[in-house]
Computed example of a mutant assay.
Amino acid sequence: MALVGPSGAGKTTVAQLLGRFWDVRRGVIRIGGHDIRDLELESLMEQIAFVFQETFVLHDTVYENIRMGQSVSREAVLEAAKAAQIHDFILSLPQGYDTVLGEQGTKLSGGQKQRIAIARTLLKDAPVVVLDEATSYADIENEGKIQAALTALLRKKTVLVIAHRLYTIQHADRIIVLDNGRVAGQGTHQELLAGQPLYQHLWRLQSAEADKPLMEVRT
């Protein structure tokens, strides 16, 4: 399922409600048929993995940044990094997986940080995955790698995708359009293109932006 809409429409808030950053005042959010308010917070967090737009990196080694305290083998960490399309980059670092990241260590690009976050999420293997603008900071090369990583991550998962770039979610089985905190429409990409004005508007804007030349050459 994907959430789309203008900035400030409430997309990230929906994801935060799922993780009980706040509780709903009306209605119910259920996972596996259970009201999430009836679950212990630790139990709820075991079932959900988040990849947020703003990805944090600890002042620690790459290995520990992926492992995040989980009791897993080194081989499992390497396999998660490979699936997240970040393994080869890690090997190019001065000390490989033992390279220290963070403010006083090696700096990463936004796309590299997001692939580290995807590796963490793969390692956690939670049944529910929330992706909040997971390709937002990626350039064209990194976006392709992140999309490949997400393909590995999302197999057999329940997924909530928050997206700004509509082309990244046009194959979602269900797209919900939010506007000013309310559901303005829902359906498949083709259904929304056929009859949802806000979705049509957003698609036209992004299509026009994609068609613009990179630069104007004058002679």
Rank of each mutant, 00 (worst) to 15 (best):
M1P: 13
M1Q: 01
A2E: 10
V4A: 00
S7V: 14
S7G: 06
S7R: 04
A15H: 01
A15Y: 11
L18G: 11
L18K: 12
R20E: 04
W22C: 03
D23A: 05
G27F: 03
V28F: 09
V28N: 08
V28L: 09
R30H: 03
I31T: 02
I31P: 13
I31A: 11
G32V: 05
H34Q: 14
H34E: 15
R37L: 07
E40R: 13
E40A: 14
L41E: 13
M45V: 04
E46G: 05
A49T: 04
A49L: 02
A49K: 07
F52Q: 15
Q53W: 00
Q53S: 12
T55I: 14
T55A: 14
L58P: 02
D60N: 13
T61G: 09
T61R: 13
R67M: 12
G69A: 09
S73E: 11
R74N: 15
V77S: 08
E79N: 09
A83R: 01
A83E: 12
A83T: 00
A84C: 07
Q85G: 01
Q85S: 15
I86T: 10
I86W: 10
I90T: 11
I90P: 06
S92A: 02
G96L: 05
G96P: 08
Y97C: 03
D98M: 13
D98N: 07
G102E: 12
E103A: 00
Q104M: 11
G105V: 05
K107D: 06
K107N: 03
K113D: 06
A117M: 05
A119Y: 08
R120V: 02
L122I: 09
K124D: 00
D125A: 03
P127W: 02
V128Q: 11
V129F: 09
V129H: 11
D132T: 07
E133M: 03
Y137Q: 10
D139S: 05
D139H: 10
I140L: 13
N142G: 08
E143R: 09
K145R: 15
Q147D: 00
Q147K: 11
A148H: 02
L150Y: 04
T151F: 06
A152W: 08
R155L: 01
K156I: 01
K157I: 03
L166N: 10
I169D: 12
H171C: 02
R174Y: 08
I176P: 02
D179N: 15
D179T: 08
D179F: 09
N180P: 04
R182A: 09
V183Y: 07
V183R: 14
A184D: 03
G185S: 12
T188W: 04
H189G: 05
Q190S: 15
Q190N: 12
L193P: 11
L193H: 01
Y199N: 03
W203P: 01
L205H: 07
Q206N: 05
S207Q: 15
A210G: 11
D211W: 10
L214E: 10
M215I: 08
E216G: 05
E216N: 09
E216V: 14
V217N: 13
V217L: 15
